[in-house]
Design a binder for these strands. Structure first.
Lengths: 213, 213
DNA sequence: GGCTGGACGTCCACACTGTAGACTTACGAT
DNA sequence: ATCGTAAGTCTACAGTGTGGACGTCCAGCC
């Protein structure tokens, strides 16, 4: 039998593929093994256990987010990183839930955080303000993606077609109904556009605080 | 045998208890049943399946967040809601991951969203701005709690004692090290204090936009 | 009172999960 | 050629969600 050099990268890619296809719940050792033409137990020669695999998979996600270089002007750097994070999280709907459920940070996450903090420090932020900025931006991005994914239609595309399919019990929720109406009916209105708007809200605040305080 | 009127509220409370004790992973039909002195299958007379139970459990969390009344001044209302959400999410560490992983909104969530939106609309927000405000605030709260939970020490208390136990591979992550140092060593510095600061950042921005635009 | 229908709890069975442990195979170095 | 080791397989076990058959209690009726 041709031993085809099972590596932990291949295992991670396979796990990501399984998750892309069937959701996080489909990521079982047997399924990942099957995708590689291998028995479940073989994976244990490269991965300690399933928890570790999921940890690494969360880090796999972080490794995919584009990072700025320390020294870049902080504001566009933050905007670009936020946009990249959003892209990655949107491409793998399972990623958000996974990343959030892991408590042990992997190398990619550490490097990520360190670089972002460095970028802010180089831009003149105090340690405390940098930490606050990081928390605020990160929170915003995660939360926005989450909100976006929970929307009952495709926020990026033509939304009109979808509203008929969804029957939210919107009857006694007038404000919700109002919002859905405006979002769905207003032709040139895209929920997704709010991402940049909201982000600038935060960045504006940070910039003011950077100058003022 | 005394039939003790198993209701879906009791089941939800039991499930929350199991999760409080042993984490989300411990919430199995058998464990929830055991906590009620009942077989797993009995639960199915009150709950469609485990997915539905988890959906309801997520809604159970939302029902616990204090809501403002439509008509209250929007800014303190938003601040209070954010604080309450944070309290609830912190009291049940499993809640965040659960809420985020569910895609079908329950009645409490709908009512919650509707009330918050109503509060903003009554405060003079346009539909678009209200939706943006909601997304920004919610995102911030979720993200902050998440960050807080991931911190390797108790963010609310005396942090100094914890740092020795944690050996983050902080060696070649200078900015991360710097931040941890300052957070942990600075006696009167509390990560938790940043919550209000960051929130005001967002509320300030909204207030400006509400007047200006 | 006694009957009955339906609501509700139990039990067993099945496919599936993570993973420990023993086995087998194939390759690189001697 | 042989051996050691790394890396696969196979078997087994406890635990999971849940379908279906079965039992059992209670409310409403005569």
């Amino acid at each position: 039998m041709a031993r085809v050099a099972l590596t932990s990268e291949k295992i991670l890619d396979a796990a990501a593929g399984v998750a892309d296809d069937g959701g996080l719940a489909a990521v079982s050792m047997r399924n990942v093994g099957r995708r590689l033409g291998v028995e479940a137990m073989s994976l244990y020669h490269h991965v300690a256990n399933k928890e570790a695999l999921l940890d690494q998979l969360a880090d796999w996600v972080f490794a995919r987010i584009e990072l700025p270089v320390v020294g870049d002007p902080w504001r566009p750097a933050m905007a670009a990183r936020a946009a990249s994070a959003r892209t990655v999280l949107a491409a793998h709907p399972w990623a958000l839930g996974l990343v959030e459920s892991r408590r042990t940070p992997g190398p990619a996450l550490l490097h990520h955080h360190d670089t972002v903090l460095g970028c802010l420090r180089a831009g003149g932020f105090s340690v405390a303000l940098a930490s606050q900025a990081f928390a605020a931006i990160d929170s915003y991005v995660y939360g926005f993606v989450l909100t976006e994914q929970r929307l009952p239609f495709d926020a990026a595309g033509e939304a009109g077609a979808f509203v008929a399919d969804v029957d939210l019990p919107v009857g006694d929720h007038p404000h919700l109904a109002e919002m859905v109406d405006e979002i769905v009916m207003g032709g040139d209105y895209r929920f997704a556009d709010q991402f940049d708007d909201g982000l600038e809200l935060i960045l504006d605040g940070l910039e003011r605080r950077l100058g003022g305080d």
